[in-house]
């Protein structure tokens, strides 16, 4: 009898996903250093605050897509879903005159409802996620225009609404620290999402689905249920993004939203989450979103034509995925 079982390799703490997140972080530091040296006033605190504020919406949408992508799907509807939920909060607060908390809860709940409809299309009707959420992207975009009469809804009856996102509530606690609430909301969403993904049973199922859906099903996992919940959570997080964006503009702009989904997916990919599913981190996505806004801001401060940022973002996506492929091959 021969036992050819190899000595199993020692446990690798450094996973490829961790590695790429580290790579993304290093890229972010390099970009910050580069612009600090070559762009005048880039490193000013007020500019840093600008960057963080500009990251908030994309970061939150990126977190929404991260859930779906790790589960092995994709969500193209996050941009227009954000707009639709903003319109919903406008309807609740301005047209119905309800109190602020109802508007906030309504927007998030409605996002969750619409997201879970995408989930039903994917899980029950077996429509590929790309198609199901492409459909939902248009449905949400259309509904936002229909509900609003294709006109912006202003939050005139809720004067505090416009302060939600840009106000620096932290200054009340720590005088002198100016940091818009939107930044804290983004980090709050990210931390909460991280806990859900890494600590909760839902998170565990999301990783299992993305790694091997059939094996999970044959282990007795109710795959459909968890998929629907995953898309529902993505929709709820879009609701948070809707609040952020409409608060900053002090209005729900129904024509907004198209194209945001691609920026969000870009942030996810740059942050090291695999489009094949089963691997990824929320913090990587946040770093990815920061890389994109640092580029935008840095190039603008340097006086480079702003559109170059789009070109550079495209390059970074390709490089990021290439790094993922190389790391995957090694492991």
């Amino acid at each position: 009898m021969t036992d050819t079982t190899q000595e199993a390799p020692t446990n690798k703490v450094i996973t490829s996903s961790f590695l790429q997140k580290a790579v993304a972080f290093v890229v972010l530091i390099i970009l910050l250093a580069f612009f600090s040296i070559f762009a005048p006033n880039f490193a000013a605190w007020s500019n840093m605050v600008n960057i963080m504020q500009a990251t908030a919406v994309n970061g939150v949408l990126g977190v929404a897509v991260t859930f779906v992508i790790i589960s092995g799907g994709i969500d193209l509807s996050v941009g227009t879903m954000m707009t639709l939920t903003a319109v919903i909060s406008g309807l609740i607060l301005t047209n119905l005159g309800m109190p602020l908390p109802v508007g906030i809860a309504g927007a998030i709940a409605f996002g969750g409802f619409m997201g879970s409809l995408s989930g039903v299309a994917v899980a029950k009707l077996k429509i590929p996620p790309f198609i199901a959420t492409l459909g939902m992207m248009q449905i949400a975009r259309g509904l936002a225009l229909v509900f609003s009469g294709a006109k912006p809804i202003y939050f005139n009856s809720t004067p505090n609404y416009g302060l939600l996102s840009p106000e620096s509530s932290i200054s009340l606690l720590i005088p002198g620290l100016e940091m818009p609430n939107s930044v804290f909301i983004m980090f709050g969403v990210a931390i909460l999402a991280s806990i859900v993904l890494n600590r909760s049973i839902l998170g565990r199922y999301i990783f299992a689905l993305g790694s091997n859906e059939e094996a999970a099903r044959l282990s007795g996992v109710v795959v459909d249920k968890w998929k629907i919940i995953t898309y529902g959570i993505s929709g709820m997080i879009c609701g948070v993004a809707g609040l952020l964006v409409s608060s900053r503009l002090n209005s729900a702009q129904p024509a907004l939203g198209l194209g945001y989904e691609l920026d969000a997916i870009a942030a996810v990919v740059i942050g090291g989450t695999s489009l094949a599913g089963g691997r990824g981190t929320v913090m990587g996505t946040i770093i990815g979103a920061f890389i994109m806004s640092v580029l935008t801001n840095g190039l603008r401060v340097m006086g480079v034509q702003e559109e170059w940022k789009i070109v550079v973002t495209g390059l970074i996506i390709i490089v990021a995925v290439y790094i993922d492929i190389v790391l995957r091959k090694q492991s």
Binding site: S211, N212, E214, A215, A216, L218, S219, V221, G278
Partner: peptide, 17 residues
């Protein structure tokens, strides 16, 4: 393909059901 989620740990596979 059907028995294990090979990208997950021994712990997670044993406990999944």
């Amino acid at each position: 393909h059907f028995g294990l989620v090979t990208g997950m740990s021994v712990r997670d596979n044993i406990t999944m059901p």
